[in-house]
Nucleic acid binder design. Structure first.
Length: 448
RNA sequence: GACCCUAUCGUCCAGAGGCCUAGGACACUCCCCUUUCACGGGAGUAACACGGGUUCGAAUCCCGUUAGGGUCACCA
């Protein structure tokens, strides 16, 4: 006997952007499916033809793919329960609507819309996250204090309404577990009434907490971090973002935070999802990103950083690329910072930071120190960080001055700035010739 | 307005009656490491919304209050 396979779905509407809340819903569905060896279905809810565009759908694909949330069935990959665009499922909806008509459960109202007669019976269901939910449907009122109006399932113009197509598709696609945002918890009663009217056993429901802004307000399109595209464009590592999102509402119940995808899949469970709305904190997301960047192998880091270098028009010789990237790897929070940080390796014509010049190069004797250092380094062998450090300190000792007298001007002379990589490692990567040229340029340019 | 969900540090989570003088992480402050900036290490500030019960004992269970969120569309 086959264990009944778990089938979950993510059913976004193509609005032109993928909201974090949506991505997190997709993630929890995906985790649930992968954890249990079930199927993850992608269905595009594009009944609203107005805002339905190919680009809007592409944004959803891009976001999910970036996060690594692969789907087993969907518009682009097909599957046995298609089509997966609601706009192409008219015949299916008509069939189910006919069934309701035959059963006398719907009627056409005075405006020509098709409405479902709500049974308004007391109703109980077990939510996988929220537990037992008990509603007395006969008490549901609308804003005017009147009885909740019967649910419209088809507009006068023939367009289908969300609640209906959502339920029909979940039935038709044999969805076993509906994992969605808590904003649908209150709608679930109506949905169950629809399942019952259709003579179908409802799936299990799991309503996950909403994601709010850090101050608790509702997150809208404009808010920082709201759009998944902003992570793609902001230099985030998908695994880091996924890790952070997973911890918004779910916890492995111990102190583990940085977890590889496989571990999250392995440990994920709806029972460990909490019910409290999560406030989104980009600072913590950034911390995860920095951690992932620091801990990943240089080879992987290079693959992620290279496109950013290219986009900035920076060219680094192949044989130096890794060495240069390694110099700043521990300091980068977002990949987009990389070009700026390593730009001075790519050109001899780098700019000098005015503040650094003022503070360091303009100091009396600074240019002389550079000359002395260059002279000292002329014969250094091997030209590596350890030797360079030893030589510099030796020079300082000989002259009876602090090493800082050399270190600071040298840093500004070779990089144009007062902050950057470890000086000696930076010198090693730059090499003797470039250092001498840069010191020369500095001395000429800033000679009193 | 009716109904539903929620309530532990500023934020994300631990805590499923005694292990809690409430733990971890981010953020913040200080110290160490480092003659840069980071990383790393150490320390610190900081919370059980309130009021009633139940119990020998409550952050944990129950009720109420308050607060926040959600749903009640010919939007999805």
């Amino acid at each position: 006997m086959n264990p009944s396979p778990v089938r979950v779905r993510f059913a976004p509407s193509p609005t032109g952007y993928l909201h974090v809340g949506g991505a997190r819903t997709a993630l929890f569905n995906w985790l649930y499916a992968r954890h249990l060896g079930g199927q993850f279905v992608l269905r595009i809810e594009d009944t609203d033809k107005e805002r339905n565009t190919a680009e809007a759908v592409q944004v959803i694909y891009d976001g999910l793919k970036w996060l690594g949330l692969n789907w087993d069935e969907g518009p682009d990959v097909g599957g046995p329960h298609g089509p997966y665009f609601q706009s192409e499922r008219d015949a299916v909806y008509q069939r189910y609507a006919d069934q309701l008509t035959a059963a006398g459960r719907v009627y056409t109202d005075e405006n020509g819309a098709l409405r479902f007669r709500l049974p308004r019976q007391p109703l109980i269901f077990d939510d996988l996250v929220c537990g037992r939910i008990e509603v007395d449907r006969s008490k549901s009122q609308n804003r005017d204090g009147g009885l909740e109006s019967d649910m419209t399932i088809r507009r006068a113009d023939g367009g289908w309404i969300f609640h209906f197509v959502n339920v029909v598709d979940d039935i038709d696609m044999q969805i076993t577990h509906v994992i969605r945002g808590e904003d649908h918890l209150s709608n679930t009663a109506k949905h169950i009434e629809l399942y019952q009217a259709l003579g179908v056993e409802p799936p299990r429901f799991g309503h996950i907490p909403l994601i709010l802004n850090k101050d608790g307000s509702k997150m809208s399109k404009r808010d920082v971090g709201a759009s998944i595209t902003s992570y793609l464009e902001g230099g985030y590592v998908p695994e880091a973002v996924l890790n952070y999102f997973a911890l918004l509402g779910w916890s492995p119940k111990d102190d583990r935070e940085i977890m590889p995808r496989e571990e999250i899949v392995e440990r994920f469970d709806l029972a460990n999802v909490n019910r409290k709305g999560a406030h989104f904190d980009l600072a913590k997301c950034d911390w995860f990103n920095a951690q992932y960047l620091q801990q990943m192998p240089l080879e992987h880091y290079r693959k992620l950083a290279t496109p950013w270098l290219a986009k900035a028009g920076l060219v680094l010789p192949d044989d130096q690329l890794d060495a240069v990237l390694a110099l700043e790897k521990m300091k980068v929070t977002h990949l987009r910072e990389v070009p700026e940080r390593v730009a001075f390796f790519a050109t001899e014509d780098f700019p000098y930071d005015p503040a650094a010049v003022e503070k360091t190069l303009r100091k009396p004797g600074a240019l002389d120190r550079l000359a002395q250092l260059a002279e000292c380094y002329a014969a250094v062998e091997p030209f590596d960080a350890a030797t360079l450090e030893a030589k510099l300190k030796e020079l300082a000792a000989t002259l009876g001055v602090k090493p800082a007298e050399f270190i600071h001007p040298a840093r500004v002379a070779v990089s144009g700035r007062s902050v950057g990589p470890s000086l000696y490692h930076m010198l090693e990567v730059l090499g003797k010739d470039r250092i001498f040229a840069r010191i020369e340029r500095t001395r000429t340019q800033f000679a009193a």
